[in-house]
């Protein structure tokens, strides 16, 4: 079984970022970059599948500039067997990423795609569904449990009101939610060992024709400063004054 795990390089999800003063971009100066945390969960799940079935191969793929190699090396350290960098300094939106990933899938022929439900930088959550549609593969988004059995993925996924279980014939695409697993900590030997694993850089097969473009970035309006109340009586009085408590 071959599993493809697309990974995205994102600004450290725990860093506080702001727009540049002219609103032209997000100021990422001095901020670290990481693998999108949901993609890391996808990698972890792939590694757990491989631990049960050692014949599994895991291929990580990223689309972007040479700097994405850093995240692909991390993916190899987590347990991917090989990595592909679709090297491009162009601007990509979700539909164009889905189109390029489709080309990667056609070349690599995985039976399963595991990927994050959204990236924590743009919070779009679009590529999974778009890619599954392009491939005409069944999908299970927001997975909290994945079981593979002879040609079928049985996926428990989170819903607005609880959860449900879907059966998907393979090949299939699964997007991961927070509670699927807790990614392992990668120790130094793993990172060193990963240096010898293959990381192939290849040019994009498609040209990104943007369907959306972000034209400006701004800070959201700040909430007015609040204050502390001394006790429960004052709290209840204030809430009644504000008309939110009967």
């Amino acid at each position: 079984m071959k599993i493809l795990v697309p990974v995205k390089r994102v600004v450290d999800p725990y860093a506080k970022v702001k727009p540049l003063a002219d609103g032209s971009a997000i100021d990422t100066g001095g901020v670290k970059f990481e693998i999108n945390p949901f993609d890391e969960i996808a990698l972890e799940e792939a590694v757990r599948i491989k631990e049960k079935d050692p014949s599994t191969t895991i291929v990580a793929v990223s689309i972007g500039g040479a700097e994405c190699e850093e995240q692909l090396r991390k993916a190899l350290a987590i347990g991917a067997d090989s990595a592909i960098l679709v090297q491009s300094d162009a601007e990509w939106d979700s539909p164009s990423i889905a189109k390029e990933l489709e080309a990667v899938v056609r070349a690599e022929n995985p039976e399963l795609i595991l990927m994050g439900k959204q990236a924590t930088d743009d919070d779009c959550g679009q590529v999974g569904g778009m890619l599954a549609a392009r491939l005409d593969w069944p999908q299970a988004t927001f997975a909290s449990k994945v079981e593979l059995q002879s040609g079928v993925a049985r996926v428990t996924r989170e819903t607005d009101t609880g959860e449900e279980t879907l059966e998907l014939p393979l090949p299939a695409l699964i997007t991961t939610d927070l509670r699927l697993n807790e990614p392992r900590y990668v120790a130094l030997p793993g990172i060193i060992k990963a240096r010898s694993k293959p990381l192939e850089s290849r040019p994009a097969q498609t040209v990104p024709l943007l369907k959306t473009k972000t034209v400006s970035y701004a800070s959201p309006p700040a909430r007015g400063a609040g204050r502390k109340v001394a006790n429960v009586d004052e709290l209840i009085g204030e809430l009644r004054n504000k008309g939110v408590l009967a």
């Binding site: 959306t212 701004a218 800070s219 959201p220």
Partner: peptide, 19 residues
């Protein structure tokens, strides 16, 4: 639309239809 956990508001121009 909000991005990066709502810490920034992005203005997005749609360049093709449908959207």
């Amino acid at each position: 639309r909000p991005v990066v956990a709502g810490s920034i508001l992005a203005t997005v121009e749609v360049l093709s239809e449908p959207v």
